[in-house]
Nucleic acid binder design. Structure first.
Lengths: 335, 335
DNA sequence: TTGAAAGCGCTAACAG
DNA sequence: CTGTTAGCGCTTTCAA
């Protein structure tokens, strides 16, 4: 039970050199003879010495960790973003501190404080709610949702949600839908509103009117809520033939709600979702969905983070990525 | 652009006290007058000073962070465990470093090295592959899967998978199934084998024989693989009337595979899954599934971690939690 | 090519 | 009640 951690000084003594030399060998900087290196490495090996990351971080004032703040890691879309980020961060030697907020502004703020205290080199907020200015120049990147109070200077990476909503609606129009509705939950996610705008634009452009009762704005993103809301609208006698849903979870709820009301998808009502999450592919019926380029979003995030860490000026602070439709059974006429 | 971080000494000077006093005020230990406290707090406030966590961690040799290693955060079951852990850790002031391994032993080992270097106070491996002995007494907790080389001393928290498999099979037997099969992917997860054991025990106890061709062992946990495997078996003329699946994802694949082969669930074949993940509830048809007590698993993990951090002796090192069936459409006869 | 020494920012004796 | 001081383990000048 040798619970006393061995440190660089002991390695130095055992190798018969100074701590400076050991440090040089470990970090491969400065100069040292082949022979010295061999000896030091041997001692390190034997004692399976591992430098103390905290001391190193303190000394260099560089903590190799970044915080990723996310509303809900159970949500497949967020989880994909998180995973794409984590892989890239690991690849360049950073660890990922994960902070789940449950959509609570207080918890979000609490996590931000903790991250700042831990001296992380940057924070990526997936669907962050508001702007943070953490004293010194801690890089903060907003991903996937516009925070309140967004300015020109804020780094924002998101899909072109308006265009996505437009394309989703258009795909259904192309399938011949005439009485289209939209299922969204706008209360906490600005993206849903952008998608709604696109939806409106497509319908207006096609000369279709929008029945306000078919703009179904649920106050929760759960599929059960959507299910009830959709079933209720249908039972009230509304007869939509197409439903754009601003997430795949809402699409699942819509399909279930339609069934509850005795309607089949896609035969009676066509449905298209958003995010192209894993359930869209696996569901019965498979769900047409707007695909977001997660990998590219993560890639940009890391690029920006690296630039910010180096103190470089950013050429571009806001990124809008195109989406595209993945067509599946729920959104097309049977052939 | 006051990019120079303010430190405790500057706060001390500005308040006209010593660093020791500032430290005492911040950490609420030692004694100090109300008046001093007020002054110090005011200065801290004005400069929105935040103590440097790295320095504190180095000094106290206590890094308030724990690593959570997980094969795949896109998997709903793992994500739930991760979330349950993260919430508890945040509540007691620790941050969660998330490490995704993609089931790769090398990546897992790489993450373990990184965590050890960062001096985290403990590591929780969700479905870790092998035993780790990280030099000094870094607490390592295995959650949800037995690592290779498991010993008495290893801390292991898992569901009683054998019993779970037994109950799943029994539920189908209770529904009148006679020709039962099992869909699993045993190559990387010992739990699947345990569930298979339970399955065998139930069938043998009920006097049912097992057709080896209905032990469908896919080499991937993806639903697509299961779908193909199940469809293929059915097309070969096999006629199972019940399928136990060792995960919900495999259950989804089985349902799709059955449909591909012209069979309906539950009418022709009844299906029960494992994990009671979110898709089980949302799927069409809803999938009967064995529920695991995620919250309790997380709770035990944190309890053990806290005990280990305090250097206490553990009363119990291995935990086996009961599972129970959540019955849904896929696993019961229509009434 | 190497070593000595000065801290990074903080905590915790130990004195007063 | 408060201040002085010695490090935590490491990197990095500056000399040798």
């Amino acid at each position: 039970m040798k619970s006393d951690k061995i440190n660089i000084r002991q390695i130095a003594e055992l190798s018969g050199v100074s701590v400076a030399t050991v440090s040089r060998v470990i970090n491969q900087n400065g100069r040292f003879s082949k022979e010295t290196e061999r000896r030091v490495r041997a001692v390190i090996e034997q004692n399976n010495y591992m430098p103390n990351g905290m001391a190193k971080a303190l000394r260099t004032s560089h903590m190799p960790a970044v915080g990723v703040v996310v509303p809900d890691i159970l949500n497949n879309h967020f989880a994909r973003l998180l995973l794409a980020l984590e892989k890239r961060l690991f690849a360049i030697g950073y660890s990922t501190i994960i902070c789940n907020t449950d959509e609570s502004a207080e918890i979000e703020a609490g996590h931000m404080r903790m991250l700042a205290a831990q001296q992380v080199v940057g924070v990526i907020l997936i669907s962050g709610r508001c702007l943070y200015q953490m004293g010194d120049g801690l890089p903060v990147i907003y991903l996937d949702r516009r925070p309140e109070g967004l300015t020109q200077d804020t780094v924002l990476i998101e899909s072109d949600n308006e265009a996505g909503g437009y394309m989703a609606a258009n795909s259904l129009i192309g399938q011949g839908c005439q009485r289209m509705g939209i299922v969204l939950s706008s209360h906490l996610d600005s993206n849903h509103n952008a998608r709604l705008q696109g939806f409106r634009r497509a319908l207006s452009q096609a000369g279709l009117s929008i029945d306000p009762e078919l703009v179904i704005d649920t106050n929760s993103s759960s599929f059960e809520t959507a299910r009830c809301a959709v079933a209720e609208v249908l039972q009230r006698g509304k007869r939509p033939d197409g439903l754009v849903c601003t997430t795949d979870e809402l699409a699942v709820g819509s399909i279930l709600g339609a069934r509850d009301a005795g309607k089949a998808v896609p035969d009676d009502i066509m449905v298209v979702g958003f995010d192209d999450s894993s359930i869209a592919e696996a569901y019965n019926p498979p769900i047409s969905s707007m695909h977001q380029d997660i990998e590219q979003m993560a890639e940009y995030s890391i690029e920006v983070l690296k630039a910010l860490m180096k103190g470089e000026e950013l050429k571009q602070r806001q990124f809008h990525l195109p989406t595209y439709l993945v067509e599946r059974t729920s959104g097309r006429r049977k052939s």
